[in-house]
Amino acid sequence: MKLLSNKYLLFLIRIILGFIFIYAGAEKISNPESFALSISNYKLIPAAALNICAITLPWIELVAGLLLLLGILVKENSSIILFFLSLFTIAIIISLFRGLNIECGCFGKGNQIGLLKLGENSLMIIGSLLLVFFGSDFFKLTDKN
């Protein structure tokens, strides 16, 4: 327990998750159409709602990642990240069960969904869970939390 709530470990997780989400968000923002197609490949969201998701999701990722990196509202932002990670992971699991062999749409092109992706996501989920529970006050921009 003590090891898990180590402030340096939490700080490291915060920085890594922050960068990952900033990158993931920015990449999708740069090419919304390709992200919309990626979502449509999952065949989980009605066509009419695809664009709304493709427009808003990346910005939520980017903002949450940025705030996390800066140490602003760490618990809240890691909750957001935890929520979306869980959502993506469920979508990937459903697709794997359906036998879909599709691009993940996680970080631009060249990411197939698969067990590796599930592993990555599980690690990030654990990381964000830790942040939700313990927060990370180390080296943050504001004192408010």
Binding site: I29, N31, P32, E33, A36, A47, A48, A49, L50, N51, I52, A54, I55, T56, P58, W59, I60
Partner: peptide
């Protein structure tokens, strides 16, 4: 996101 999408030349229509 909506503001950015509105001004982005590669932006998407809200409803596909």
């Amino acid at each position: 996101s909506f503001v950015y999408n509105h001004f982005n030349p590669n932006g998407l229509n809200l409803i596909r």
